[in-house]
Design a protein around this nucleic acid. Structure first.
Length: 251
DNA sequence: CTCCATGTTTAGAA
DNA sequence: CTTCTAAACATGGA
């Protein structure tokens, strides 16, 4: 979504000014370096890999973005008010601007020579939506730990967060604490991941627009499973809250 | 006031 | 070596 937005609205315009409002979002780059890399240039393409966004600058360098918990890119038309927690603002010739809004500042902005380099250095694995089934099976099999932390491990599969991991497990009938899953169940999980991510993209990450058969619109204490009416369970796994249905999600 | 929260990294314990 | 937990980061809402 963010990538599509940037692709549609932030490319090919000459950058007039950069304003780093809060340098805490910068990751191993100074505000000066960022300005030097962007001023007078244009953004030429946008790609997403897992939770990372990369914007190519026409100099060949890339802007590397992570939205964190609360980050979001916002396109501002000429004269429109900017979001309250704008941490970085890029103004284009012509009056439009790109604001990076991020309340909690868990997002980050950096520069890299190439996305491949950046991903390798950070140890980020294949993107969930581009990953082949066999690669997924290879990454997930032979592990002794619980399935949920493996899904959240960005080095094994990049792009699933806590909520979508819960949703994929829910859809494939697998308990987040299950271990050593058989091939057949991993295949079901793979399909669920693909479907959950595609459906979520189509609904613009709005939980209320997701099908009622999804966990996410019901992911609250005391709610019932939309499949069988069983009370949803809430547990902590690897420090993250997990919701699941004890009736249809098996170990 | 306290607890919790959509993410990542790091340190340290099993 | 693998797996898991807690803490830290910053801010707001219940």
């Amino acid at each position: 979504m963010a990538r599509r937005l940037l692709e549609a609205r932030a490319l090919h315009q000459k950058i007039r000014a950069i304003d780093v409002r809060d340098s805490r979002i910068l990751n191993s780059v100074s505000a000066q370096d960022l300005e030097g890399a962007l001023a007078g240039r244009r953004l030429s393409s946008a790609i997403r890999h897992g939770k990372r966004l990369f914007l190519q600058i026409d100099s060949g360098l890339w802007l590397a973005l992570h939205l964190g918990l609360t980050g979001w890119p916002v396109i501002l038309e000429k004269g429109s008010a900017e979001p309250r927690h704008t941490r970085l603002r890029i103004d284009f010739e012509g009056g439009a601007a790109l604001a990076f809004d991020d309340l909690r500042i868990f997002g980050e902005v950096g520069l890299t020579a190439s996305p491949q380099d950046f991903l390798a250095r950070r140890g980020i694995g294949p993107d969930a939506l581009k990953m082949e089934k066999e690669a997924f099976l290879a990454a997930m099999s032979g592990r002794k730990g619980k399935i949920k932390p493996a899904l959240l491990d960005q080095g094994l599969i990049a792009g699933l967060g806590n909520l979508y991991a819960d949703e994929a497990l829910f859809q494939s009938g697998i308990c987040p604490q299950a271990r050593s899953l058989k091939r057949e169940r991993l295949e079901a999980l793979y399909s669920a991941i693909q479907e959950v991510l595609r459906t979520s993209l189509a609904s613009n990450a709005d939980f209320e627009k997701l099908p009622n058969s999804y966990l996410l619109p019901h992911r609250r204490p005391g709610e019932a499973c939309p499949w069988d009416g069983t009370a949803l369970q809430r547990i902590k796994i690897a420090g993250r809250t997990s919701y699941y249905c004890p009736q249809h999600q098996k170990k």
